[in-house]
Simulated assay, not measured.
Amino acid sequence: MVTLFIADLHLDPSRPQITELFEHYLASDEVRRADALYILGDLVEAWVGDDDDAELPERIATAIRSVRDAGVPVYFMPGNRDFLLGETFAQRAGLTLLEDGAVHDLYGRPTLLMHGDLLCTDDVAYQTVRQQVRTPQWKAQILAMPLEARRAFATKAREDSRAHTGTTQESIMDVNADAVQQALRHAGVTRLIHGHTHRPAVHALQLDDHRAERIVLGDWYEHGSVLKVTPSGAELHGLSVS
């Protein structure tokens, strides 16, 4: 019995070896025998819409659909890079979409699932932009643009993101401890799994009178990272590029 979690793959044509690693992993016995696979955001470097006719979205859909066809449910929670991913692609890939902050029972332990960016409350500039771009009106306006215009917009957004990251202290871009505690209390649970920060670790913490844990998923920039949750606990594992 095992449930698998991945996040922050940032799949992009410029890093074909990571796309191949993703496809290879999804075709593995470990995935095909899992109880479920969760992808907690930033599956791609940039998502410009479900109508994207590039090769990469089709490869992603094919790989995920094969997992679903093998009888393994695949859950997807949008991140800050792919929040425009919608029901059209989800149906094509066999994905079940999740709201950020969903609580799922993992072998008898309710667990809060988040992408993680909402917890980075010290990064005020980022949170302001996030609030603006997540409105239905903004999404509709962007998706109404021609595909090539959206691709150009995504390229500019990535450049702006790199500039922001390069001039912002790392501590500001990490999660805020109070935000983590508040999220756990609001959900009424003692375990949180998230990505976004690219700082894989299992953190023990005290939540009022209870022991709690925060598990951070790793990114896939140079190699893969997967969290394996079983009835006895949770462990992070790396995946090597062959």
Rank of each mutant, 00 (worst) to 15 (best):
V2I: 00
M1S: 12
E30S: 08
E58M: 02
A36R: 15
T3I: 11
D51A: 00
E58N: 08
E20P: 08
Y38M: 08
A36E: 10
G41I: 09
A27F: 04
L26W: 07
E45D: 15
L40I: 11
L11K: 08
D29H: 04
L4H: 07
F5M: 13
R33W: 02
Y38H: 13
R32Q: 15
L43P: 14
L43C: 06
A36P: 15
L40Y: 13
E30V: 01
L56S: 03
D12T: 10
D29N: 10
L21F: 03
D53C: 03
M1V: 04
A7N: 13
E55Y: 07
M1I: 06
W47S: 10
F5I: 07
P57C: 01
E55C: 00
F5R: 13
D52V: 02
L4S: 06
L9H: 11
D8I: 04
V44S: 12
F22A: 03
L4C: 07
P16N: 04
L9I: 05
H10T: 05
L9Y: 06
D35G: 13
L40T: 08
T19K: 08
A7I: 10
D52C: 06
G41E: 14
D12Q: 05
V44M: 14
M1L: 10
A36I: 10
D53N: 13
A36G: 13
P57R: 05
L37V: 12
G41R: 15
L56N: 04
L11W: 07
A7G: 11
A54E: 15
A54W: 07
E20K: 11
L37D: 10
R15N: 13
L21N: 07
D12L: 10
D29L: 03
D8T: 03
D53I: 05
I6V: 05
Q17I: 01
R33Y: 03
Y25E: 06
W47K: 12
D53K: 08
V44R: 12
L21W: 00
F5S: 12
L43Y: 09
T3D: 11
G49I: 03
A46F: 11
A54Q: 14
M1R: 14
R15L: 14
V44F: 08
E55V: 08
F5Y: 14
Y38Q: 13
D42H: 10
D51E: 10
L11F: 02
L4F: 09
E23A: 03
R33C: 09
E30A: 01
P57I: 00
A7W: 13
D8F: 12
T3F: 00
R32F: 02
P57Q: 07
E55F: 03
D42Y: 07
P16V: 01
D42G: 10
Y25R: 08
A7M: 14
E23T: 01
L43H: 09
L43A: 09
W47C: 07
F22S: 01
D53F: 05
D51S: 06
A7Q: 12
V2E: 12
R33I: 00
W47Q: 10
L4R: 05
A54H: 13
I18V: 06
V2F: 01
A54T: 05
P13F: 00
Q17T: 05
D52W: 06
M1H: 12
H24V: 02
